[in-house]
Design a protein around this nucleic acid. Structure first.
Lengths: 186, 186
DNA sequence: CTCAATATGATACGACTGTTTCACTAACGG
DNA sequence: CCGTTAGTGAAACAGTCGTATCATATTGAG
């Protein structure tokens, strides 16, 4: 009895809120402007998500979900060599279309440094790559449980992304990845 | 005639404000709590610095100054080899005492991604290292104007710092740097 | 229709923000 | 003493923030 709930509305709002956060960043996020951009009201955002904190959590989860999906879709699992795979990953993640994700990624990291209590599973964002990358780089890794190679590979990617987002010098970043591939090959 | 100005007071406030920002981060910085912690008033902060924005700029400049000084003091310029130099830099910058600087560094980067207009010379934070590192790694660099080697070296350092600040796994980060040194050596 | 549950607008609350205004004191030169 | 300039406390201003309250639709079941 009574009016039936409409979960589709909440999910539609979540999708559009995620678009908004990817476009505008997490830093100055505020309910009233967000609601205005989404043709809704702060009242409804709180009604659907309970609090701003929970809304942000939902948005970050959705953004992660999207990123993982896109990555799975666009990376052929049967790359010719570890080097090819590394180049594929770099080409995908450094593409301009990924810039909003990368930006959000760095924002969340910085916020986590200031407020670690809000990110209980922050280490997972790092170690989650090990399974995938460990298998990919098994040729150059010391063994199946080697976490050092994935750590270094991801450090290069993240470090170059940091550089790229700061300077915008794509050519230099690309060539630095070439250099790293060269080092791995020998 | 009239009371003479006392520039020492402003500088003392700047020093203690920098301590505070290094300890508490940039994100939620607000004048009233800052003033309370510094035994002064928002009124005086604005009197001395004009606006919050200018105060933040002054604090960031002071933090940069301190970091550069500490680095210059603690790194022997006559390291035995490029590898030794790289290890020195890593040991210095990844030490727990540097954590506040590293945190502020990542915070500023993230804020710069959201508000580039506030950081007109943001690329300098990256390219400023080239002169120093280019000379240091001249043995393995392609030439005196090689910017690729410094780019890759700094990417590894920043990427590993990112990992270390997120997971706290120092051992793994140290070993990843070992692996990178190994790759450079061969 | 009645009842019940969801959805939603309008508005208010209290706490905060950076900044300004007004008044006042402190320290100097003449 | 006076005049001038620097320093400083108290309070107010106009705004934003997340959130809570109250009322009112809306949409179903019986």
């Amino acid at each position: 009895m009574g009016r039936p709930p409409d979960p589709a509305r909440r999910e539609a709002t979540l999708a559009r809120a995620t678009d908004y956060v990817l476009a505008h960043g997490l830093a100055g996020l505020s309910l009233r402007p967000l609601a205005a951009a989404l043709d809704t009201s702060p009242r409804m955002l709180l009604y659907d998500f309970g609090s701003k904190q929970e809304l942000v959590s939902a948005v970050l989860a959705e953004a992660r979900r999207r990123g993982a999906t896109r990555l799975a879709e666009n990376l052929p699992a049967d790359a010719a060599s570890p080097e090819e795979h590394l180049r594929d990953i770099w080409a995908w993640i450094s593409a301009p279309e990924r810039a909003p994700f990368v930006r959000l990624f760095f924002e969340v990291h910085a916020d986590g440094l200031a407020h670690p209590e809000n990110y209980p599973d922050r280490a997972e964002a790092i170690t989650g790559w090990f399974q995938t990358l460990g298998a990919t780089f098994r040729d150059i890794a010391a063994g199946p449980d080697d976490t050092i190679t994935p750590t270094l590979v991801m450090a290069v990617i993240r470090g170059l992304l940091f550089d790229l987002t700061t300077t915008g010098d794509r050519h230099r970043a690309d060539r630095a990845l070439d250099r790293f591939c060269e080092l791995l090959r020998r």
